[in-house]
Design a binder for these strands. Sequence first.
RNA 1: GCCUGAGUGGCGGAAUUGGUAGACGCGCUGGAUUCAAAAUCCAGUUCACGCAAGUGAGUGCGGGUUCGAUUCCCGCCUCAGGUACCA
Length: 965
Amino acid sequence: MNLILKLELKLRMDYTPRDIEQKWQKYWEENDTYKVSNQSDKPKYYVLDMFPYPSGAGLHVGHPLGYIASDIFARYKRQQGFNVLHPMGYDAFGLPAEEYALQTGIHPAVSTDTNIKRYNEQLRSLGFSFDWSREVRTCDPKYYKWTQWIFTELFHHYYDQAANKALPIADLVQTFEKEGNTNVKAATTQEETFDAAAWSAMSKLEKEETLMRYRLAYREVGYVNWCEALGTVLANDQVKDGISERGGHPVVQKAMPQWNLRTTAYAERLLDGLDTIDWSSSLKTIQRNWIGRSEGAQMFFDVADSEAKIEIYTTRPDTIFGATYMVLAPEHDLVEKLTTEGQRGAIDKYLSYVKSRSELERMADKQVTGEFTGAYAVNPFTKTKIPIWIAEYVLISYGTGAIMAVPSDDERDKTFAEKFGLEIIDVVDKSDYPGATLSDKLGKMINSDFINGMEVSEAIAEINKRVGQMGIGTAKVNYKLRDAGFSRQRYWGEPFPIVYDADGTAEMLPLQELPLELPDTEDFKPGQGGQSPLSRLTDWVNSKQGYTRETDTMPAVAGSSWYFLRYMDPHNDEAFAGQDAVNYWQDVDLYVGGSEHAVAHLMYSRFWHKFLYDKGLVPTQEPFKKLINQGMIQGVIEFIYMKKEKTNGQAHFLCAGLVKRDNLYDQVARIPIHIDYVIDYGSEKSFINIKSIKQFIAWRPEYENAIFECSKGTFQNGIFTPKKDATGTHLVTHSEVGKMSKSKYNVVNPDLVIDQYGTDCFRMYEMFLGPIETSKPWDVQGISGVSKFLRNFWNLFYQNEKFTITDDEATKDELKVLHTCLKKVTEDIERFSFNTCVSAFMVATNELRKLKCNKRAILEPLTIALAPFAPHISEELWSKMEGEGSVVMAQFPVFDESHLAEDSITYPICINGKKRMEASFSATASKDDIEKIALELDGLEKWIDGKTVRKVIVVPKRMVNIVVS
RNA sequence: GCCUGAGUGGCGGAAUUGGUAGACGCGCUGGAUUCAAAAUCCAGUUCACGCAAGUGAGUGCGGGUUCGAUUCCCGCCUCAGGUACCA
């Protein structure tokens, strides 16, 4: 190595991010820098991230986006003198670990543990200020003991609508014994009335069944995705285009008893609570629409020539004179009973078609389908006979599972009526309201007998009154929100702390018997009839004398519904968290996470929290005061097309080119393929060749004998058969931009980037990518600019390769640069605009380089302000400056407006709104002065050119606009 | 389908309350340095026409309000997230 090279290496070794970062990460760990106490004189601040599911693919570049943002905020708050709780943990139960176990035989507990270790390393290398002593894992029995306990409490409570809170079910039993349920106002599965005598006449089993209809955790028959070929229940995510993703087998809906949570009992409070929290209005709207409150009427229609009555729900009772037919959900109880002999065959055929369709497909389809039952109902007002149909657009889970169809005033009813030639009667004259949509509920009633001429709102009230008088229904508030399905026929989840006695009555295990630990097994295959793998462990199932255990497990949302409370007091064995801890930390001040959790997780945790509040166990009604949705770092997902119909019993894959050429989109399913096997991954022309196919088959052995066809020929069982002169296959894949996820096989890890550029650079680069809320595909182009910035910042402190800063007084220009930056950064952190913070630091650094400033008075506050973003380099420079303690606790600098004052301001001079010139005015000039001077500016004549000046608009400190014509 | 977002140079993005569109960074072009390259530094860079001065156009598309619209209103298009068992 020659001398010059050596010298150059030495020069470049000055800022060596990885050395500095490891040094300070070790220092923070050894000094418990981020450990936080539940007792402090400082005000509390709780910054929470949505904890990750520890996927086998490792932490991907999307995870840190939110974590970096929340870490910056937590560090900023710490520097402002708050006692900051900033914890991290793992949402460790879930389907992927179990799928992995089925493929490899590796126990989910083992793979989860391995994954967590990897995540731990990765998270630590990112320099987050987490208090790791508070880490929680939902799969830890010490943790899920309390998940199980909260479940048992839900079981032991009902929702009393008079008290507007959850009350013990034992109270309800007392009431039933005293007076039956006639005075009870409570959330229930089904309206029924009984008196004390009727209650006491019930058998033990009947009593239990009745109580089940009130409990907040209850068991009821529900529908699951059933795959006969695989003998298992599938998650929605495992079903693609109507067939199982694994193996491509048909999937149907199957009824099975399921545990549920009565989230609907809290619908109104979940709605009201939204007004009290600082969430984005779009997220609140999503939740409001999800809850879907509507006011309408529930009423009964008689069936012609039958005792049966059909209960319907409608938001438009006023349109009843236009109700020309009825539609039942295909799963409706009455379908079997009402179908006439003549229509039996057609109905059965339709039912089997519907069974093959998921709810999502049923709602998404533009085409309408349906079948006539042969039966007729009687419109209670017109007394005419109207046909009863079944159709998949009516869902059994919403309302009563039956509608009166008014084709004149409902889009879908109209499409349906037009397709099947059903009668349409206009009942609302909307001519007074041009531009109003159907959902505005505006217009005047026509063709409607006694309500003719009334406005819609009047008519609704009138019909509701009549319906009540006739005893055929009542006004009712309805919600789209459904109770939460809480059973999974899976191994890797919390076991239900439930045993059934000989009669099949469910009993909850008492707290002393919790946790009910997940039993060990080596066999994760589903049990008989799609039961959970736990059902195979007969010793465990029967381990309690005279009882059998529930073998379903809880879904992943169980553990994540309350984990933020556990962080407050993570090692407590006596309670889910001690009351002192809960009362000190109260609630989450800032919650950061992806908008993909907008409903599921954020609705469930609010529900659990409200229940705990009702029990007096938490002090606030809402768990998350402020919420920021970070966008998603996306990846490209690669798919290969597979024909839905097998060819000679084999799966048949097609080149995207063939699918396009022959327009076969209806006949193919998209099968995701790992991005590592795809050539030119991410580009438009990405494809797979024979080598890729071999890798794919090794990964997905069920496709060992599959056919791979492209325009050049076919490949099967290792043999390529060319169609014309060709030497190999070239199947173009189908690429989509989408979520980075292990299940999409498109994960990119941050490790390599961090190795190359360092953590501080990675952190700042992810922030620099754009606003925290927007989603964008991952791309490393541009990272060198951030790297260069950090080196330039570092070099401000160096002269002739020596660390040199002076105590000289700062100049006016230097102070202006500093305070402009501090103002921008402070204001931008407060509004979570971190990308613009990074550019403010860049601007300041560039200007200070030009000013050759190396003064402590400037660089010290700048270093403190940079610390939340790039904590390692800041800590290193802070220690070199001999700052006191760690920069982590240094007071965040406050900007001073007086340094920002300008003597003169440059105004753009616009003619008719278009900038034509510039002019400088004193900062103290009045509007009139500016107008006068502006009109006399040299060069203005050219623009006015014979036209008249109509108006001059002067916006102080902004611009001048001269209007001419 | 329904609900919620997003769309600005070659690329990521900025413009905080209706007031200079393109901050900052990448890339690219030219130059300096170097035997050469990397690195670094300097200058330029929305597009079209033009040697230039300049002129015109321009924030997904089509309209509207306004002295002035990326920003507000109406109607579309495309993409993303969710759609109740991925988490």
